[in-house]
Nucleic acid binder design. Structure first.
Length: 191
DNA sequence: GAGACCAGCAGGG
DNA sequence: CCCTGCTGGTCTC
């Protein structure tokens, strides 16, 4: 079982970078994943939201280094217990109708791009140009690509569904993994 | 506010 | 294949 299509992803905009990120690891179908959490204001009280998901390509410490490079001002705290809760939603059996909060820093335009990706159907592939049209900014292709590249939350913001017009398929964590994700989605209608 | 930077794209050679 | 012009949002002074 992997991420269900029924899983609702609620994307909220962080006004500034968080000062603390709690993190932990998940063993997923597609390898080890580093998951980072931050607190956001929910309907009634503070709740946890996913703010980063990186695939572990080499080892844990090199992945943590990558996080530190990208978020230099952030204090990282290991918190396996909090991450375990999200692990159950992501990789567990309770995907149906669950809501997962994702909080990301970014501009309005970037949030538009990321939301458009989230709303794509599982397994659906789209080019940068098509995505720009979807956003009613047909000439802002490069700007869309910039926003896609800034995505810090792999899988939940499914930037693996973007391909370039000539069929080339780059991916931050490797074209191979991207292809695996797409093949899996196409065959199962899950993720 | 200017100028550089890009996981794009189309066109030409 | 490589080069060029065009593009628009963001980042850095």
């Amino acid at each position: 079982m992997w991420i269900s299509d029924d899983l609702q992803i609620s994307l909220t905009k962080m006004k500034k970078l968080p000062s603390i990120i709690r993190y932990g690891y998940i063993e997923s179908k597609f390898g080890r994943i580093l998951l980072g959490l931050t607190s956001i204001k929910g309907a009634n009280d503070e709740c946890d939201a996913v703010c980063l998901i990186y695939f572990v390509v080499n080892n844990d410490s090199s992945t943590l280094d990558e996080v530190r490079r990208r978020w230099p001002s952030v204090e990282l705290q290991a918190d396996a217990v909090a991450v375990e809760k999200f692990s159950k939603i992501l990789c567990g059996d309770q995907g149906n109708n669950a809501v997962i909060n994702v909080a990301v820093p970014g501009t309005d335009f970037q949030l538009d791009v990321w939301n458009a990706l989230i709303n794509l159907k599982s397994g659906r592939k789209i080019t940068y140009a098509e995505l720009a049209e979807l956003l009613e900014r047909p000439t802002a292709v490069r700007a869309v690509a910039n926003a896609v590249a800034k995505n810090e939350v792999a899988i939940l913001i499914p930037c693996h569904r973007i391909i370039s017009k000539n069929g080339q398929s780059k991916y931050h964590w490797g074209a191979e993994l991207k292809q695996e994700l797409l093949t899996y989605e196409a065959n199962t209608n899950l993720i």
